[in-house]
Amino acid sequence: MGDHGHHNSVRRSYDTVAEEYTARLHNELAEKPLDRALLASLLEQTEPGTVIADLGCGPGHVAAWLAAKGARTVGVDLSAGMIEAGGRRFAQVEFRQGDLLELPAEDGEFGSAVAFYTIIHLDPDDLHRAFGEARRVLRPSGLLLLSFHIGDEVVHRDEWWGYGVDVDFRFFEPSYITELLEGAGFTVEMHMERTHYAHEVATRRAYLLARRT
Rank of each mutant, 00 (worst) to 15 (best):
H4F: 03
H4L: 15
H4K: 13
G5Y: 11
H6P: 15
N8M: 10
R12I: 12
R12Y: 09
S13L: 00
T16G: 01
T16H: 00
V17Y: 05
A23W: 00
A23P: 01
R24E: 03
R24L: 05
N27P: 00
N27L: 00
N27D: 02
E28G: 05
L29P: 01
A30G: 05
D35A: 03
L39P: 00
S41H: 11
S41E: 15
S41T: 13
L43F: 06
L43K: 05
E47A: 04
T50D: 02
A53F: 01
G56C: 07
G56Y: 03
H61V: 01
K69G: 02
A71V: 05
A71T: 06
R72C: 09
R72S: 13
V76P: 12
D77E: 03
D77I: 12
G81V: 15
G81M: 12
R89D: 00
A91M: 07
A91C: 07
Q92Y: 07
D99H: 01
E102M: 09
L103S: 09
L103R: 04
D107F: 05
S112I: 04
V114Q: 03
A115S: 11
I120S: 04
H121M: 15
L122F: 11
D125V: 15
H128T: 15
A130H: 09
F131K: 10
F131S: 11
A134M: 14
A134D: 06
V137R: 08
L138V: 11
R139C: 08
L143Y: 03
L144Q: 07
L145G: 07
L146I: 11
S147M: 06
F148Q: 07
H156L: 12
H156N: 13
R157K: 13
E159Y: 00
G162T: 04
D166P: 14
V167D: 10
S175M: 06
I177R: 05
I177N: 03
I177M: 07
T178H: 14
L181F: 13
L181W: 12
L181Q: 14
G183M: 12
F186V: 14
E189F: 05
E189Q: 14
M192K: 10
Y197P: 02
Y207N: 06
L208H: 05
L209K: 11
A210G: 09
R211M: 12
R211Y: 03
